[in-house]
Simulated assay, not measured.
Amino acid sequence: MAREILILKRLNHPNVIKLQGLVTSKLYCNIHLVFEYMEHDLTGLLSDVTFTTPQNKCYMKQLLSGLDHCHARGVMHRDNKGSNLLVNNE
């Protein structure tokens, strides 16, 4: 987990979720990662919304831009799926 935290702190890109901080519990020996808030994930949106071609292109461009940023820094995301693609209301 320490490696993942260090990697997340290193990544700074508009299309990569930002790690805001850590919350620890000494009582339960837990560590919780705190990320910026996103209202939706892509899987949830697809069940309610039909995207236009320009929207699909925009989302794909953002996805590939974020992945390019990660790959350029030696980070490979191994769990790309709709529920891990987060979307805000903007």
Rank of each mutant, 00 (worst) to 15 (best):
residue 51 F to R: 04
residue 73 R to G: 07
residue 65 S to R: 12
residue 58 C to T: 12
residue 63 L to M: 14
residue 80 N to E: 06
residue 64 L to C: 15
residue 46 L to R: 15
residue 68 D to Y: 10
residue 54 P to R: 05
residue 45 L to Q: 04
residue 71 H to D: 00
residue 61 K to P: 08
residue 65 S to N: 12
residue 65 S to A: 11
residue 87 V to H: 02
residue 48 D to P: 03
residue 73 R to W: 05
residue 66 G to E: 00
residue 63 L to Y: 12
residue 41 D to V: 01
residue 77 H to S: 01
residue 73 R to N: 15
residue 78 R to C: 07
residue 84 N to D: 01
residue 41 D to P: 03
residue 48 D to C: 14
residue 64 L to P: 08
residue 62 Q to F: 07
residue 56 N to T: 10
residue 73 R to D: 08
residue 53 T to C: 04
residue 44 G to Q: 12
residue 59 Y to G: 05
residue 47 S to W: 11
residue 42 L to C: 09
residue 70 C to T: 00
residue 40 H to F: 13
residue 57 K to F: 09
residue 59 Y to D: 03
residue 67 L to V: 08
residue 63 L to W: 03
residue 52 T to E: 10
residue 81 K to W: 01
residue 57 K to Y: 03
residue 56 N to C: 14
residue 58 C to R: 13
residue 72 A to F: 03
residue 66 G to W: 08
residue 59 Y to L: 14
residue 72 A to V: 05
residue 57 K to L: 13
residue 80 N to Q: 07
residue 42 L to H: 08
residue 48 D to I: 13
residue 60 M to T: 15
residue 56 N to K: 13
residue 65 S to L: 12
residue 58 C to A: 13
residue 78 R to Y: 00
residue 47 S to R: 15
residue 65 S to C: 11
residue 60 M to P: 03
residue 41 D to H: 07
residue 57 K to V: 13
residue 42 L to K: 10
residue 72 A to L: 11
residue 87 V to R: 04
residue 60 M to S: 14
residue 75 V to A: 03
residue 41 D to N: 13
residue 73 R to H: 15
residue 49 V to A: 10
residue 62 Q to L: 11
residue 75 V to C: 05
residue 55 Q to I: 02
residue 87 V to Q: 02
residue 50 T to M: 10
residue 79 D to W: 00
residue 52 T to D: 05
residue 48 D to L: 15
residue 66 G to Y: 07
residue 85 L to S: 02
residue 62 Q to V: 05
residue 78 R to L: 08
residue 67 L to Q: 05
residue 44 G to N: 09
residue 62 Q to Y: 04
residue 49 V to I: 13
residue 74 G to Q: 04
residue 80 N to G: 01
residue 84 N to Y: 03
residue 40 H to T: 03
residue 55 Q to G: 01
residue 86 L to T: 06
residue 79 D to M: 01
residue 79 D to T: 04
residue 58 C to S: 13
residue 45 L to A: 10
residue 51 F to H: 07
residue 48 D to K: 15
residue 71 H to N: 03
residue 54 P to W: 06
residue 43 T to A: 15
residue 63 L to R: 11
residue 78 R to T: 04
residue 87 V to C: 07
residue 84 N to K: 00
residue 72 A to H: 08
residue 76 M to A: 13
residue 72 A to D: 10
residue 69 H to Y: 09
residue 41 D to M: 06
residue 40 H to L: 03
residue 47 S to A: 14
residue 65 S to Y: 04
residue 63 L to N: 13
residue 41 D to K: 01
residue 62 Q to C: 12
residue 84 N to R: 00
residue 55 Q to L: 02
residue 62 Q to K: 10
residue 40 H to I: 01
residue 75 V to L: 08
residue 42 L to E: 09
residue 54 P to H: 08
residue 43 T to E: 14
residue 45 L to M: 15
residue 86 L to M: 07
residue 64 L to A: 11
residue 64 L to D: 10
residue 82 G to A: 05
residue 43 T to Q: 14
residue 84 N to A: 06
residue 81 K to L: 01
residue 72 A to Y: 06
residue 43 T to K: 15
residue 77 H to Q: 01
residue 83 S to A: 05
residue 75 V to M: 02
